[in-house]
Each structure stands twice: as C-alpha cells, then as structure tokens.
C-alpha cells in the first residue's frame, strides 16, 4: 500500500488543492456554493412535480424528502466521477511541468464534491425538520449513521475516480462513455422509485447489480425511513468500496508512468 503512504504524505497538498478548487470555483460568482445545489434542487422539483401531480400513484410520502435523500449521494457520485475524467488531462501543466503526485488530481475532485455533499446535508436536515414539525415524518437516530455511509461512499467514489481519471487520458472515448453512462445510471439506481415496488423479479435483481444501489438505498434507509440499512446492503457497500479502491490504485499505478507522455 505504497500509494496510501504517499497520499498520507501529500495530505497537506490534498487539503490545499481542495480548498483551492472550492475557492476558485466560487470566486466571482454571486450565488457561490448554491450553484452546486442548483442541479439537485432542480431535479428534486421536477421529479416531485412528475410523481406527485402527473402520476400520483405508488409514491412514498413525503416524496420530496425521499428524493432528496437519494439525489444527494447520487450527485456526489456522478459529479465527482464525471469531473475526474478530465482531472488529469485538464491539469496537463502540473503533470508535465511539476513533480506532482498525479493521483492527487482525481482525489481532489472527489474531496471537493464530498464537501459539496456535506454542505447540502444541513439543507436536507432542515427540510426533515420542517416535515417533522408538520408531523409527516419522525426523525430517527439512524441519521447518525450518515457519516459512515459517506466514508464508504467516498472510498468507493475515489476508486472509480482514479480509474476513470487515468484511463481517460489514454482512452479519450471514456469521457463520452462516462457522461452517457451517468444519464443511464440515474435511472437504474433507485432514486426516484422504490426498488421493492418493481414487479419484475429479474429487473429487481438487475438493479441490485448496480454498485450505487446499496449506497442510495442505505442513505434512504437511515435518512428517510429511519431504519438500519439491510445487512446485505452494508456488506455490498464495504465490498464495492474495497474493490473499487484496490482496483483504482492498481490501474492508476499501472498507468501512472505513461501519463506525462500521453497527455
């Protein structure tokens, strides 16, 4: 685990670059951080409208809260992975001109999206508070598990990000592929629907193969339903996180030496 030791040495660098990323992103924009919320909020509005007004059947109530609990982790995943496809090629100057640990680049992307995620959580909590005050939900102590889910998800996302970041330098097509897969991914992850309400057994099984499914379902469990994640989901999350991280380190390690030349 040489890579992990290296990363520990570069922790200051990671922190500084993440801070830089966030500062640079919001400097000069008036609404700043709220732009990172705009997309999830828009999705939230649209799907709430669709499923409570256009097709007002089968939904859990309060639907917006359910959506919110799934959209935030999904946005974290999809934004971080999408952006990391360009993290190395977009910083060619660093890779080619500075002695720089290339793995820091996708990780910085992941960390800065994790910060966005963390900053959006209070808004979800406020929304929960409002619904609780109206008596529509009860706030359960299971929300205390959220940080653990975030930790597992971050490890998972980081592994994927390292893989796509390094591989997309050599295979440019990967960027377009990932962009399209993310669109598909949103619908094959149980964010706007409940997996249990699907009749087809085969379809349910297929949806469970999506590695993001146990994560999103678990967030919904602890935040919305106020229950512990299923044991199977917990095991799957740990497994996906480990496989993703080990795979990411392995692939990145294999490709690292060619990056400076291939950009």
């Amino acid at each position: 685990m040489n890579e992990l030791a290296t990363l520990y040495r570069y922790r200051q660098l990671l922190a500084a670059l993440t801070a830089r990323d966030l500062k640079a992103r919001y400097r000069g924009s008036i609404l700043g951080f709220f732009w990172s919320l705009a997309n999830p909020l828009l999705l939230l509005g649209v799907y709430t409208l669709v499923f409570t007004r256009f097709f007002p059947q089968q939904v859990v109530t309060p639907y917006p809260l359910f959506l919110f609990a799934g959209i935030l982790p999904w946005t974290f995943f999809s934004a971080a992975v999408l952006e990391s496809t360009n993290s190395i090629a977009g910083n060619a100057g660093l890779i080619k001109k500075v002695m720089f640990p290339a793995e820091a680049l996708p990780l910085v992307v992941v960390l800065s999206h994790l910060v966005h995620f963390a900053l959006a959580l209070p808004i979800l909590l406020v929304a929960m508070g409002i619904y609780a005050a109206m008596g529509q939900v009860t706030i359960s102590p299971t929300i205390a598990l959220t940080p653990f889910l975030m930790l597992l998800q971050t490890i998972f996302v980081a592994g994927v990000a390292m893989t796509v970041a390094s591989a997309s330098v050599l295979f440019r097509d990967l960027r377009d592929l990932v962009t399209n897969l993310m669109q598909l991914g949103f619908f094959i992850t149980p964010i706007i629907y409940l997996i249990d309400r699907i009749d087809s057994r085969l379809l349910r099984a297929l949806l469970r193969l999506n590695p993001m499914t146990p994560f999103v379902v678990s967030y919904q469990d602890v935040l919305f339903f106020g229950r512990l994640p299923a044991m199977s989901d917990a095991l799957l999350m740990v497994a996906y996180a480990l496989v993703s991280m080990i795979g990411g380190i392995f692939i990145f390690g294999r490709l690292r030496d060619t990056l400076a030349e291939a950009i």
Binding site: R20, A24, G93
Partner: peptide, 19 residues
C-alpha cells in the same frame, strides 16, 4: 506551472510551496 489564475498570489504561494 502550478498557479491557479482565479486565486490570489498569497494562496498560490502556499499551494505551489506545498507542491
């Protein structure tokens, strides 16, 4: 090479130094 145009010279000194 490592400077980011959007942030200040001060912040860039830190980041560049850490790099």
């Amino acid at each position: 090479a490592g400077f980011h145009p959007e942030i200040t010279g001060r912040e860039n000194i830190y980041i560049n130094g850490i790099m």
